[in-house]
Design a protein around this nucleic acid. Structure first.
Lengths: 160, 160
DNA sequence: TTTACTGCAAATATTTTGCAATATC
DNA sequence: GATATTGCAAAATATTTGCAGTAAA
């Protein structure tokens, strides 16, 4: 991944948060930018506890309450989304309008893979719904990963 | 909606649960079928508290613990899925392999609309991923509903 | 200087667990 | 009758809230 591209993206996200806060006459606190940063530099879909611990480990003192508050703010700003990967745990991930991705979730072992977004879907989303302005979307595909599919077949055979 | 079709569908789901329980040598308790029934006859995406209250209101005595246990079971059986519509509340909905639907979620007011599944997407899912056996999928489209989009534009104008 | 935000700790809400009672096989 | 499953209440987690102190504007 080219470092420049990554840096530009990060800057632009910070700018978007700054603009959002200015529009609403809210304060640009270091916590808000630090949390945004952490989510954008983390491997996708991080949960609150992990996020909070990671920040403390980085030496950035912040309270859980602020993490929760800020996550709601970032969601409202359209910079972060909240998801649950079938296990009921709330996780947070950055929203990349371009270069989106889909989740492949194994219903047996819970493993999550990512798959590059497919253009057809994006076109579809952009044009289909009337009386609705799409901003972004999430596609979750549930099924069996290759390992579990194999194990499943073995069991089925045994039971016959 | 034709009553017959609905009845057949319901029967088949019960049969699928029965088969699942038999395969695992688990017991066919009335609670399990009652909870399955409730989810399948409820308007999509119901949360635990509502589900539990609805069952009590129907005169079906069941504990919260059993509701939680059974939901996990139904998910494992592939009959129900757990989702969160951006608000962090866990909800449960039936899985219809045929006649799937997408969610349109307003990021401002939280309102959820449903949209009939688009065939293109289904084809795509069925064929694309290698080393993965898709069972079903969820597509969430986030954006602004017509009301909020209008309100948003009004505010933007005012601020200029 | 003003007051929006944060941190803390307590309150609330949500989910899980242990074990005796019950119902399925 | 044997034991998997339920119900209950208590424990563990997760999230929200109120308010005094801090820091952004």
């Amino acid at each position: 991944m080219p470092a420049n591209e990554e840096k530009n993206k990060e800057l632009s996200v910070k700018q978007r948060l700054a603009r959002f806060l200015e529009n609403r006459k809210m304060r640009k606190t270091s916590e808000r930018f630090a949390i945004l940063d952490k989510i954008y530099s983390s491997s996708a879909h991080i949960d609150v506890a992990t996020l909070h611990q990671a920040m403390l480990a980085d030496g950035f003192q912040v309270s859980r309450a602020t993490v929760y508050n800020t996550l709601d703010l970032l969601i409202e700003a359209g910079l972060v989304r909240r998801i649950t990967l079938g296990d009921g745990v709330n996780r947070y991930e950055r929203i990349l309008v371009v270069n989106n991705h889909h989740h492949l979730i194994c219903t047996r072992c819970g493993k999550v893979k990512e798959m590059k977004a497919v253009k057809v879907v994006e076109d579809l989303i952009a044009h289909k719904p009337r009386s609705f302005e799409p901003q972004y979307y999430s596609l979750y595909i549930y099924g069996l990963c290759s390992k579990c599919a194999k194990a499943d077949k073995a069991v089925a055979k045994e039971r016959k």
